[in-house]
Structures are given as C-alpha cells and as structure tokens.
Design a binder for these strands. Structure first.
Length: 476
RNA sequence: GGCGGCAUAGCCAAGUGGUAAGGCACGGGUCUGCAAAACCCUUAUCCCCCGGUUCGAAUCCGGGUGCCGCCUCCA
C-alpha cells in the first residue's frame, strides 16, 4: 500500500491528503507567544505539537520553511511595562530569551525565522495602507479598522455566519467602528506609550495584522500550513484570513491545524483560578523528555489534562522505553557473547515492519499516541532479543538506531547519562566483592543504600547494570 | 442563543462499519542467592443511556444525560 500523509484541516473539518504547493517543500507558519511573561504549558503544547509536525515532514524528506512570530508589542506588554517600570522592548527581549530557553529544553527546534512585530513594522504599515486603498479598511479617530462585511469569506474558518458572530461582538468605549465585527489594524498611541509613525498618526499595530504581514513577507501569499492553538481560530485566524485574502485575492493557507487545550487537574488553566503551570517551573520538576512524551501520548487535537499524578504515570511509562534502550546499550558495551553475524531476514522484516507502522500512524494526522505504541512494541521485541544468550551485535545496533530514528521524529531522547561518582563506584565494587564471597546480607544492604541515593542496581548474566530511579518513588 | 469537542478496563489512551491497540497499576508463572529488569499468562462478551439503520456498530442516524471549549485580543 502506498503511504500518504493525511492532515485534519480545520477549514474543511476533514482529514485531507497533504499536498504541498511545491513538490518537496513545505511553507508553514505557527502563531507564537506574546512575550510579556514566561510561557505556560498551554504555550508549550503548540510549540511541541507543530515542532513534531515539522520534524515528521522533514523525516518524510520535505524541505520545511518554518516561521513563528513573537508578538513583542501589544496591550499586555504595555501594561506590563507600566507595572514594572521597564520598557516594552526590555520586557520583550527578556521573555524572548526565556521562551527560547524553555522551549529549547523541551527540544523544540528554533524556527527558521522568528520575526518580531517591532521588526516588521514597515511591512505591517504597508499592508494596512493597501487594505485602506482597496476599501477593506478605514481610518477612524486615529485608529484603523478592518471592514469585516467587505470580506465575503468572513467566518469560514470558525464556521460561523456573520449574523451569529455579531451577537457576541461589541464596541469598546472610545472605539469608532462602523460595525461591531470590525477589528483593529492600527491603534493610536496614548501619551507615553510605545509608538511608530504611520499615515494615520503615531500608534502601534493591532494583533492580527502582524501575522498577515509576516506570512506575506517571509512565506508568500499562499502557504501550506498555518497552525496554532484551537482558541486562535476565532478571532485571530479568522481575521488573518480576512486581511490576507482581501488584499491578495488568494487563499492564505491550504491547511489550518489547531491543537487542543490543556487542562489542569480537570479545570481550565487560568490566572483567576491560579493554576497556571509555567514551563520554566515544570522542567525543574520533570525530565523534559517525559513532558514531551506525556504531551504526545495524546493526539494533538484532543484536550489533555495535566496533573502531578498523570505526569508521574508518564514518567513511569517512559521509563520502560528508556530502560530498554539503556539495556541495549549496556549489552553492547559489556557483552563478549555477542555474535558478529548478519541480520536474519526475520529481523530485517521485523525492524522494517515497526518502522512502517510508525510512519502509517504519523501519516494519519500525526497520531503520536499510536506512534508511541509502536515504540512500545519495538521495546518488546528488543527485550526478547536482549534475553537471548547469544545475540547479534548488529541486531542490537539496529534496534538502537531504530529508537534513535523514531524518537527523533517525536523529539525526545531515551539515552540517559548516568554519571557515577567515585563513592558510588566504590560501593558497587564493594557489593560485587561481597557477592563473590556470597555475603548476601552485606551485598543487599549496599544495594539498599544505593537505592536511597537513587541508583538501582540490576544483576544480569552479562554483569551488573545500573540506572537512575524514577524520581517518583521517594519524593515526598 | 450560535458553532464545536469529549464520554472506551482501577488510571491514562488509540480505534470512526467487521467483531476492543498500547502504557501504568493489579494478580499468577518463569528467571534470580534475594531482588530488579525482562518474558509468558490473566485482566472491558463490551465501549454514557435509549431507540433505529445494517448480515454486522464503540464506530452511521435520531433522541437523551454529563463534562468542556469558542463566540470577551486566552495557546
């Protein structure tokens, strides 16, 4: 059977065969964070989900151009600036750095281009100007608004009619819109606020326009994939479509991908509830590999619940894969009983079958949950091989390569460095000596002692093996 | 009110017409000086409820219940 990538397109609400504009190339844009604070795991989910999309596309051989923005000027930044007495630029700079660190810890690759709103100002102003010229936007009291009713496709992404949307729309005080659904393209600066010169006076861009301008600037009028959190579909993405398609008379993006929400202990994560989990803090408590594994154990479009209990479960679960991987490595390092044979047909088929299944699952709208289950099946096979007295070095190596290859697509690592200090090495040696003397009481007490230090010893026919305990057990 | 999502074993989670993946936890066995790891076996006659379509439905249709999201620049 042929293998075809299918993606769920929010625009059509269907899984569609993925066909890029240009053979072998993919242009994708992912809405990035407003950099006024540390990111929370709700920000981390799209970063991870679409990083995996990118990794998988690259795995399939596509040349991916990945653009993700930083909103470095908006109301929240201005408010933060007032509260902290720091400039908008300083705050943005600091949290862009923090974002890169946090997301980097989660093994999210940097975008090819990370444009900032403040560095795209010329293009933004130009974009608005053209919309005004075309009659899709109007200046009013120093602000510029998009004339929603002039774009006939308005509502096509969120599948709402203009009439329905109007019910919830309202005009804020001070705004002079022709229609409640019109949205801001340019906002006049209040005294003391950060501002740029424009044909409509000093001000700053509205939120939605930066993405339209950046997509146009870096990727073109039509791109392959536009992605972001589910909540962005309305109004943000809807407005982006309105802006870009009004100006270009071309489809903005062929595929719209939206990830599901994150919940904390089954509640919405929000500041008012006070349950916002910052990535910054979380990566101190859990191995980022585990966090990434956990997030991808659920399909990206489904909601995912976060709790300590669930994270610890994921840790436990992840440990099975990691143990297998490290046991493979251990066996290769210490064993003298390995055969230098070629791979049997049976195992060649087994390995390629695992890989094929992984690809099929990923082809089905990036079904990482199922892809991970293939990893567990691979672990089972590898464990059986490990149990054999005489295994092939080549086979073990192939299993390691398989794990590296597939976990590389999902963006986590199974390899675990266990650095032993002198004291621990001595204890291990002492225990080995005790075992030789058949002084099991002493040997066991040393083993217990090491366990308290987080080192678990395992005696195997090929010699002693050790690993770090899952943090789970002892932590109070 | 409009639009949408979810409900599968103790827990997590796939599966969207062909007779319930995978993981954690639990129990039994093998291995081990004892463990650990691993392997083998066992664990949902059933997928929120009620009807319907079908040779056949967790999967499609209708109705109901519960939880949740968007429609308020929040990923």
């Amino acid at each position: 059977m042929s293998i075809v990538l299918k993606v769920y397109n929010s625009l059509t609400r269907k899984k569609e065969v993925f066909k890029p504009l240009e053979d072998g190339k993919v242009k994708m844009y992912v809405c990035g964070p407003t950099v006024y604070n540390y990111i929370h795991i709700g920000n981390a989910r799209p970063a991870i989900a679409f990083d995996t999309v990118r990794r998988y596309l690259e795995y399939l051989g596509y040349d991916v151009l990945y653009v993700s923005n930083f909103t470095d000027v908006d109301d929240r930044l201005i408010n933060a600036s007032k509260e902290r007495g720091e400039s908008v630029i300083e705050i943005a700079e600091r949290f862009i750095r923090a974002y890169k660190e946090d997301v980097g810890a989660l093994n999210v690759q940097a975008a090819d281009i990370h444009p900032r709103a403040t560095e795209t100002m010329d293009e933004i102003i130009d974009f608005i100007k053209k919309l005004v010229d075309k009659g899709f936007a109007y200046e009013s009291g120093g602000d510029v608004y998009f004339r929603t009713k002039h774009f006939k496709g308005y509502g096509k992404l969120s599948h709402q009619s203009i009439d329905e949307l109007k019910v919830g729309a309202r005009i804020d005080v001070g705004e002079q819109k022709e229609d409640p659904l019109d949205f801001t393209l340019w906002k006049q600066a209040k005294p003391g606020e950060i501002k740029w010169e424009s044909p409509w006076g000093e001000g700053r861009p509205g939120w939605h326009i930066e993405c339209s301008a950046m997509v146009e600037k870096y990727l073109g009028n039509t791109i392959d994939i536009h992605a972001g959190g589910q909540d962005l579909s309305f109004p943000h993405h809807e407005n982006e479509i309105a802006q870009s398609e009004s100006l270009h008379d071309e489809t903005m993006a062929n595929y719209w991908l939206h990830n599901g929400y994150i919940r904390i202990n089954n509640e919405k994560m929000s500041k008012s509830i006070g349950n916002v989990v910052l990535v910054h803090d979380l990566i101190k408590q859990y191995d980022p590999n585990v966090i990434r594994f956990f997030i991808q154990s659920v399909h990206y479009r489904h909601p995912i619940n976060f709790s300590d209990e669930l994270l610890k479960g994921a840790e436990q679960s992840f440990d099975r894969l990691r143990t297998t991987y490290n046991n493979l490595q251990h066996r290769l390092e210490v064993s003298a009983d390995l055969l230098e044979e070629t791979l049997t047909t049976q195992y060649q088929e087994k390995l390629s079958e695992l890989k094929t299944r992984f690809v099929q699952e990923m082809d089905d709208d990036f079904n990482t949950a199922n892809a991970i289950s293939v990893l567990f099946d691979a672990a089972k096979e590898a464990n059986k091989v490990l149990q054999a007295e005489n295994s092939s070095r080549l086979l073990l190596t192939h299993f390691i390569e398989l794990f590296d290859e597939l976990t590389g697509v999902l963006g986590f690592e199974l390899k675990q460095e266990v650095l032993l200090d002198k004291e621990i090495e001595d204890l291990i040696a002492k225990r080995e000596e005790a075992r030789k003397q058949r002084d099991f009481a002493l040997a066991d007490s040393i083993r217990d002692e090491l366990k308290l230090k987080g080192i678990i010893l395992e005696d195997t026919p090929q010699g002693i093996r050790w690993k770090r305990a899952v943090s789970n057990d002892e932590n109070e």
